[in-house]
Amino acid sequence: MKKKIIYSLGLLLSILLFTSNQPIASGYGIGDIATDFNLKNTDGKMVSLKDYKDAKGFIVIFTCNHCPYAIAYEDRIIALDKKYKSKGYPVIAINPNNPEKQPKDSYDLMQVRAKEKGFTFPYLLDEGQKIYPQYGATKTPHVFVLEKTSKGNVIQYIGAIDDNYEEPKAVKVKYVEDAIDALLKKKDVVVKTTKAIGCSIKV
């Protein structure tokens, strides 16, 4: 009997130990209404989705300075803004990381990167890390395409930018572009969610 108690306690302890690090599987699904936010841009100004009166939607991308996946996608993120801002879908980049845990993702270094690469879109710091958990971003980069409707900003695509993180020239499917092209034609998004390898968010 004693052995059983000890075994059960041991099992309970091991369950508690290994679940303590589990990521929270929550956040938005397709069709949910996305929260707005008021976050600081690298130019010092505060930015919210409601500032964009003429936008038809948004390409919200959780990204950062240091992650090699994010860096590999930087030029493609700039290209997305170039292509879709004038069509009503601007890129809104948000750094979800805690600079105390990852100093390379500090606000100062965000300013440096934005200037170096000539970002044409806001690059906001998720100060206090309150926004990314609501969206359910689990890594960088992680894209959420929002469509403005009378009900609010509806999530229409979640996931990767395309199907080849390493070689832009070898990309066969551009998930984000396909999603926005469909929305612009008032058609259904075919591939609504995808998964990608990326850097975990530093809490």
Partner: peptide, 20 residues
Amino acid sequence: DPDANAWIEKVDANWSGSIP
């Protein structure tokens, strides 16, 4: 295999793709 979306769920259906 950079088309990660094609194989992440083959490793585990619940994997979001983040490492470790």
